[in-house]
Design a binder for these strands. Structure first.
Lengths: 194, 194
DNA sequence: GTTAGCATGTAAGGAGTTACATGATTTT
DNA sequence: AAAATCATGTAACTCCTTACATGCTAAC
């Protein structure tokens, strides 16, 4: 269960919000968006689209810009029900929102949620990562395992990566709180730890 | 297929090399080792152990240190065949060795391979990540997608993370080559796939 | 004219999680 | 005494990837 089915649903709904799209394009955009790891396969996307069609979350539409010469492509757009579903999914706060695979796609569509939700999700994720760090720390203490040089280096790099993400989240959180205007730049060098 | 079956096999073989262990402990050690993401469930580990038993890669052994009072635990140790299999898996160079999920566990057991193999795997992974960066770069150029602020920030953070891992790999490669200088050079050539 | 990319699907199968079952031992 | 953790499994189910199948279109 690398990604829960809901994640791809949310992603499709979110992307389709930008305008009608067909499957192939949807896949490209998705892989660009969260392509830091596995890519989504057609065998996964097309059935998902069919399922969403049946659930009336999306509907087929005519590709207006398609020249007559081109093979007719099936273009999807969001229905009213799909829009509600998107809103519902995006306003979820709780583990599902900040677990590894779900967080990214939610974050990408943060522009369409309230700041209150954004803050809760960002803080939730940060807490999650900090718990993870604490757990590894305590596990390491009680395990007298003869760790070799490489395993140790891997551990160190892992910890550093997570700590880095925690700092990133902290910066985003203070940015959210600091500026009420949505026009601020996120890449400030505020070194607010945690 | 978050992790290919071979990965858990390699991990078990590698851990068992440190001495006999039972399932529960194996799982804990494994999750500590690569716990930056999903944890391995029992429903996954125990069947894998059974399968490895049948394949004669591991065998049950008596838990020598178990007090009589304790419930007898099934302790596994590596067979000769298991040892060969470990060697075989560890000397693989090629995509399977440097894909996301496989790389970590291989790296953790680097202490038990030749430097030649280590260098090839490290370089292979670095090339992989660099290709990924290049691909995202070029995809971004040809996509005029109206990326919102948050999606952009996510992208930026992703790129930075990968770039960071590339630097890490470069440092490790230099270290392997005996160049103990903390600074890494951009020199590289070997990217031959296999 | 042939390769590469566009475009849409289906079927089989693998891998692994969740939930279920059960019970011992240690810690609070 | 209760709660946590140790300890070992199985069955059902979900999700996803791989491989297959098909055909168009742009570029070289």
């Amino acid at each position: 269960m690398a990604r829960r089915a809901e994640t791809i649903e949310l992603a499709v709904l979110g992307l389709l919000h930008e305008g009608p799209m067909h499957g192939y394009e949807l896949r490209k955009r998705l892989n660009l968006m969260l392509g830091w790891g596995r890519v989504l396969s057609y065998g996964s996307l097309y059935p998902a689209l069919k399922k969403m069609l049946r659930a009336d979350l999306i509907k087929e539409a005519v590709a207006t810009t398609t020249p007559v010469t081109r093979r007719p492509r099936i273009v999807y757009e969001v229905t009213a029900a799909g829009h509600s579903e998107f809103e519902r999914l995006m306003s979820e706060v709780g583990p599902t929102a900040w677990e590894d695979d779900n967080f990214d796609i939610r974050f990408a569509f943060f522009g369409r949620t309230d700041m209150e939700i954004r803050l809760r999700v960002l803080e939730g994720r940060r807490t999650r990562l900090q718990e993870r760090l604490a757990r590894v720390q305590s596990d390491l203490e009680r395990t007298q395992a003869e760790v070799n040089r490489y395993a140790e280096e891997l551990q160190r790099h892992g910890v550093e990566s997570v700590e880095r993400e925690v700092r990133w989240l902290s910066e985003l959180i203070s940015a959210e709180r600091g500026e009420t205007s949505p026009e601020h730049q996120a890449s400030t060098s505020t070194s607010t730890d945690q």
